[in-house]
Amino acid sequence: MRLFVGLLPPPPACDELVLALEAHRPRWPGLRWLDPANWHVTLSFLGEVPDPALPELRARLADAAAHHAPMTLSLAGAGAFPSADRARVFLTGLEGDLPGLADLADHVGAEALAAGAGQTDHRRFIPHLSLARCRADTDLSPLVEAFGPFSGTAWEAGTMHLIRSNFGGGTRGGAEARYETVDEWPLTARTPRGQS
């Protein structure tokens, strides 16, 4: 199954973001706006994971979660990948305990790789939440600038999710994926990792 590990913002944070986007969406009808039910912050993309690797993966992810404390985060600002003037993805960023978030992402990636389920081309972690996609390179500079002042209410990220990507008809055709949590673990350390 096709999996990734992520954090899910709580409904109030998503509702706030939906409201903030209302004025911008009609001006950009060519974008494929992602369903808020699918919004997430990816910690580690795992890709296709063979069933025999799942027990060890679950055990290692549970252990990783136990070594990290809940963290305070908020959605804020705007950006685009790979760049605002040649964008394929429009996104909002995160603020708050970004060092703790990056540490968690690194730990999750290392544990997944050790379980035979991670990606060997480990990319630099960029905390974000994808909001819309473009079919071709698009200049989203005006949208990034207009949405840049957005600053959401802080929330506590206290649970890590193992999420399955389901594509309509079993292919990755044009349909948006549906995401399904297959397991979750609370972040239970009393202090952030590396602190006493």
Rank of each mutant, 00 (worst) to 15 (best):
G77V: 08
L187H: 01
E176C: 11
W155Q: 00
S83T: 15
G174L: 10
L129C: 11
A136G: 07
P26W: 00
A189V: 09
T92I: 10
L3K: 09
A69R: 11
S74M: 11
W28D: 06
T42I: 03
A146Q: 10
A132T: 08
A69T: 02
L129Y: 01
G96D: 06
A117Q: 01
P26I: 06
A84T: 07
L61M: 07
R2L: 09
L73Q: 06
G152T: 01
P11F: 03
L129S: 01
A110F: 11
F45D: 08
A154I: 02
T138S: 11
E111K: 14
G173C: 04
L61V: 06
L113N: 09
G96R: 01
F4T: 08
L34N: 06
E16D: 15
V18C: 14
W155I: 02
D103M: 09
F4R: 02
I163K: 00
R172M: 11
H68L: 04
E56G: 12
W155P: 04
V5P: 03
E22S: 13
A59E: 15
F125K: 04
F167L: 14
P26F: 03
R88Q: 13
L34I: 14
D139Y: 03
D139F: 07
P82F: 01
A37M: 01
E176Q: 15
L101W: 08
L8H: 12
P36S: 02
W39A: 10
P29Y: 13
G158M: 02
P127S: 04
R27V: 05
P11G: 06
L113Q: 15
T120G: 12
A102I: 02
F4G: 07
V182E: 06
P99L: 06
D97G: 05
R190E: 15
A117R: 00
P82K: 01
P52K: 05
G93M: 05
A37E: 15
S130G: 13
L129W: 05
M71P: 02
A177I: 05
S74G: 13
G168P: 15
R190Q: 14
D85K: 12
